[in-house]
């Protein structure tokens, strides 16, 4: 902490007060906070997935009850909101990946667009695997 006690010739620290709602007044700041708040939706999805697994393990009636519960308007609204936040998270995360990862191949830096594209390819692959595990008849 910058704790400075008063001395006669010491300059006083000047800090402009920033409003608690500083992120509300500019689009880019607001989007930044929305992006950060997507983490709450991530936590909710974890809870939801855990609940699903518990209910499926408890038997068919419990699974049916979970499906009924999930179509309640309040739960559905929360899940639609969570889906929107998860898409925001995925898009912002993948688009930032090139800035976070510096990959070299044969002494050349791999272009950022390629890194972002490989992340989207990963999303497509994982989604395809989930769909196949749930729906494809082997």
């Amino acid at each position: 902490m910058n704790h400075v006690s008063y001395t006669p010739y010491h300059p006083r620290w000047h800090r402009t007060r920033v409003s608690t709602y500083w992120w509300l007044w500019r689009r880019s700041y607001f989007l930044f906070i929305l992006r950060e708040l997507s983490s709450l939706s991530v936590a909710w999805v974890v809870v939801y997935v855990l609940a699903l697994v518990v209910r499926v393990s408890q038997g068919e009636a419990a699974y049916r009850a979970f499906l009924d519960w999930s179509s309640r308007p309040s739960v559905l609204a929360l899940n639609v909101l969570s889906l929107a936040f998860l898409v925001l998270h995925a898009v912002t995360w993948f688009n930032l990946a090139p800035q976070a990862m510096v990959v070299h191949f044969r002494h050349r830096r791999v272009p950022g667009a390629l890194i972002a594209a490989s992340n989207y390819a990963g999303l497509a692959a994982v989604t395809a695997i989930i769909l196949a595990l749930l729906f494809v008849q082997w």
Partner: peptide, 30 residues
Amino acid sequence: AALFFPALIFLFGVAFPLGWLQPPPYDRLL
């Protein structure tokens, strides 16, 4: 989260409850 959750929450949170897709039979999910 970015790889797995969009698909999972779309299917189990939105598409199945709204009837856009038929949820998988119980035995398969179990």
